[in-house]
Design a protein around this nucleic acid. Structure first.
Length: 267
DNA sequence: GTTCGCCTCCGTCAGGTATA
DNA sequence: TATACCTGACGGAGGCGAAC
């Protein structure tokens, strides 16, 4: 990961700055290849980055980063949202802001969570993370919520929009179940549940092989969902890196110009 | 056309965690 | 404690471009 702001030989890594200041900051520095479980949280919403800059009082730079959406960056002194395309480029003129990297002049870099933010720091408890990450409800709960099961015994091959919406039928080619077991599952927006399946003879199949098939089926779905979330997370991290690199470059340019201005006045 | 290396996607397993 | 869920790791399958 590239360090940010390298003027005067000092480096500030924005990815570790938050933890240094003790404030909540997203763990952007996390290696994409090794996303640990504790770090596997969605960064898919809003965060505000506040930069406290000593030379100009307090300047807030608000960075709103949303995956698959447009992002917005604002400054407190000039609240003019700049819509960002997916091209990941942010260039905001912040005439009153200065950043210095010597002697720790960059004092604060904190992330303030807003209402729908589900980015959290390493300090937050795993339970809180878990709570924020809406967990998929159990199949039992879904069944209870629905108050029963869909009548089984008929083979239905339906995809969204045809037949019974979301109701799918799978035929298991399993040696332990002569003729194969039939598994029905309904799929809503974010949930899936199984209904009792019958063989062609109307006998409920509840053997170990069937349980295994169900478990594998569920795990298959879980793995898909897990990979989808991971992709989304990685994409969001990449977006943030691009945003921070651009902001860093902007700040470097501002620092250079202010240095030149100062030099002219002292001459 | 064939082979090779690389990449991506997918299914499965194992182990950890949350919950009833 | 049993069950459900999540996710890293592993290996196989298939696509794709390059080299021959």
């Amino acid at each position: 990961m590239e360090s940010m702001v390298e003027e005067n030989g000092s480096t500030v890594d924005p990815l570790s700055q938050g933890s240094q200041s003790g404030d909540a900051a997203p763990a952007i520095a996390t290696s994409v290849q090794s996303l640990s479980r504790s770090q596997h949280h969605l960064v898919a919403s809003t965060s505000i980055v506040q930069l406290t800059l000593p030379l100009s009082g307090t300047t807030q730079v608000q960075s709103v980063i949303q995956p698959n959406q447009q992002s917005v960056i604002q400054t407190a002194t000039n609240i003019q949202p700049v819509a960002l395309s997916k091209a990941n480029v942010i260039l905001v003129s912040k005439p009153n802001s200065v950043i210095q990297t010597t002697q720790g002049s960059l004092q604060t870099l904190q992330v303030v969570e807003t209402g729908s933010d589900d980015s959290f720091s390493d300090e937050e408890s795993p339970k809180k993370r878990r709570d924020i990450l809406t967990r998929r409800p159990s199949y039992r709960k879904i069944l209870n919520d629905l108050g029963g099961v869909i009548p089984a015994g008929t083979i239905q091959i339906a995809t969204q929009g045809e037949g019974v919406p979301g109701l799918h039928t799978l035929t298991m080619s399993n040696a332990a179940t002569a003729g194969g077991a039939i598994v029905q599952y309904a799929q809503g927006q974010d949930a899936q549940f199984f209904v009792p399946a019958y063989t062609g003879h109307g006998v409920v199949v509840e053997d170990a092989a069937r349980k295994r098939e169900l478990r594998l089926l569920k795990n298959r779905e879980a793995a898909r969902e897990c990979r989808r979330k991971k992709k989304e997370y990685i994409k969001c991290l990449e977006n943030r890196v691009a945003v921070l690199e651009n902001r860093n470059q902007t700040l470097i340019d501002e620092l250079k110009s202010l240095k030149e201005l100062y030099q002219q006045k002292t001459d």
